[in-house]
Amino acid sequence: MALNTPQITPTKKITVRAIGEELPRGDYQRCPQCDMLFSLPEINSHQSAYCPRCQAKIRDGRDWSLTRLAAMAFTMLLLMPFAWGEPLLHIWLLGIRIDANVMQGIWQMTKQGDAITGSMVFFCVIGAPLILVTSIAYLWFGNRLGMNLRPVLLMLERLKEWVMLDIYLVGIGVASIKVQDYAHIQAGVGLFSFVALVILTTVTLSHLNVEELWERFYPQRPATRRDEKLRVCLGCHFTGYPDQRGRCPRCHIPLRLRRRHSLQKCWAALLASIVLLLPANLLPISIIYLNGGRQEDTILSGIMSLASSNIAVAGIVFIASILVPFTKVIVMFTLLLSIHFKCQQGLRTRILLLRMVTWIGRWSMLDLFVISLTMSLINRDQILAFTMGPAAFYFGAAVILTILAVEWLDSRLLWDAHESGNARFDD
């Protein structure tokens, strides 16, 4: 018995066209964080690309023209004298008006014999932002004059995390709450300039795509075929072959399989920071003279006294001054041990922890910024005066060393310790 099946006739004509040209192939790229070699397709503007294995951002879609970056830099340069030299806060102490600005706080630190601690604050609040705007201006002028731009481009990517104007702005709020127990506070004209400078700096850093600047100024022929001998440069993120001198053909720094002496430098910085954190938390970090009496505060006791007036601000200072430094030390110690013992479990967790400490590390400088600003506000000789204690130097040095330890660690070593050939990683 035959089955009668109805015929289905399409209502619209289906047209099949042959592909007349070869589909576009992607360029081969190595991930600078996990060293995976993959094919990167062509990316349009405002599109980002991520590593298929570790999800690290390979290409950032946010990109401004150099002219727009230069305009932002010149605007920031105009704001800087007002943000640093004009009063941020006014207080009335014992019937006398006192003005506080950024430069005055750094000068008070240096004047009291601790120039190293003052230079830490100076670099993060004044030096690094000033280098940022002058570097962008150098790129703008240098591109037109045919100057060598490689050193500036190499420095810009590392400079971003040292620009800490946003953290200093939080420190202004913390210092205001600490001082309000002794005097009446009012915002100064410099505060508005400083807030504007923070906003412009944040926007500029978020749109400063150094890798795209490398592509514009020093374009290189990408690798179009897969080759395990391809290496990625950690300076400019170019994937290719080393030249005859073993250097990256684009930025001219040595092109090595792994960062040289990464573990040794990381261990040295980490152990030194552990040693410095002990006096930083045991010795007094601030000293207040009130009517001839002397009151010393460690980091913890200062947080407890701050909690009596504002528990939320005390929580912020606790996280930045105690929780973050010790968390960074514990995480980095764990990561280094996992590399030495070739741990194969929990790779995803370790990668996330490394990215976390990379982002939060700079916030530990908050305590030094609060001390710097408070020193310029309260300084009335023996009637009422505020000065920093010996722990300030140890704390600042420990924070900087932990930042350097994270920067010096080559994250690809975590993958080397893991089993080879993993296309995915999980716990």
Rank of each mutant, 00 (worst) to 15 (best):
A2F: 04
A2S: 07
N4K: 10
T5M: 12
P6Y: 08
T9K: 12
P10H: 09
K12Y: 07
K12A: 07
K12V: 04
K12D: 06
I14W: 05
I14N: 11
R17I: 08
I19Y: 04
E21I: 06
E21C: 05
L23E: 08
P24V: 04
G26F: 09
G26Q: 06
Q29L: 06
P32D: 07
M36W: 06
S39N: 08
S39M: 07
P41K: 07
P41N: 05
I43S: 06
S48Y: 12
A49H: 05
Y50D: 15
C54Y: 00
A56F: 09
R59S: 06
D63H: 14
L66H: 10
L69R: 08
A70L: 14
M72K: 03
A73Y: 10
F74E: 03
T75G: 07
T75Q: 07
L78Y: 04
W84L: 07
P87S: 06
L88W: 02
H90Q: 05
H90C: 04
W92R: 04
L94N: 00
L94A: 01
G95L: 06
G95W: 09
Q104H: 11
Q104Y: 04
G105K: 01
W107A: 09
W107N: 15
Q108F: 14
Q108C: 15
K111V: 02
I116C: 11
S119G: 02
F123L: 03
C124D: 09
I126R: 15
T134M: 13
W140R: 09
W140P: 06
F141C: 06
R144P: 01
L145R: 04
M147K: 05
N148M: 03
N148V: 03
L149R: 07
R150Y: 05
R150S: 04
P151S: 04
P151N: 03
V152M: 01
L153H: 04
L153K: 02
M155R: 02
L156P: 02
L159A: 04
K160M: 14
E161S: 10
D166M: 14
I167P: 06
Y168I: 04
V170T: 15
V170L: 07
I172Q: 07
G173A: 11
I177P: 09
V179N: 01
Q180R: 06
D181K: 01
Y182E: 10
A183E: 00
G188S: 09
G188V: 05
V195A: 13
A196R: 00
A196I: 15
L200E: 15
L200A: 09
T201Q: 09
E211P: 14
E211R: 15
E212K: 15
W214V: 15
W214F: 15
F217C: 15
F217Q: 14
Y218E: 09
Q220V: 13
Q220D: 14
R221W: 14
R225M: 13
E228M: 14
K229E: 14
K229H: 13
K229W: 11
L230F: 14
V232P: 05
L234R: 11
T239K: 06
P242R: 14
D243R: 12
R245Q: 12
R245I: 11
G246K: 14
R250E: 05
R250I: 10
H252E: 05
R259Y: 11
R260H: 10
R260S: 06
R260A: 08
H261D: 09
H261R: 09
Q264D: 05
Q264L: 04
Q264N: 04
Q264M: 03
C266H: 04
W267F: 12
A268K: 01
L270C: 14
L270K: 08
L271F: 12
A272C: 12
I274L: 15
L277F: 00
P279K: 10
P279W: 14
A280Q: 02
L283G: 05
P284L: 03
P284S: 13
P284E: 08
I285N: 01
I288K: 00
L290Q: 01
N291K: 13
G292S: 12
G293F: 09
Q295I: 07
E296Y: 13
S301M: 04
I303M: 09
L306V: 03
G315R: 15
I316Y: 02
I316P: 15
I319T: 09
I319L: 15
I322Q: 05
P325I: 01
T327H: 07
V329W: 10
M332V: 12
S338E: 08
I339H: 09
G346E: 11
T349Q: 13
L352I: 13
L352V: 12
L353R: 13
L354K: 10
R355E: 11
I360S: 05
R362F: 02
F369C: 05
F369R: 00
I371A: 00
L373T: 04
M375V: 10
D381R: 02
I383E: 01
L384D: 00
T387S: 06
M388H: 10
M388W: 02
G389Q: 03
P390L: 06
F395L: 11
T402K: 07
I403Y: 01
A405D: 02
V406N: 07
D410Q: 00
R412Q: 01
L414E: 03
W415G: 10
D416A: 12
A417Y: 11
D426C: 04
D427W: 09
D427T: 02
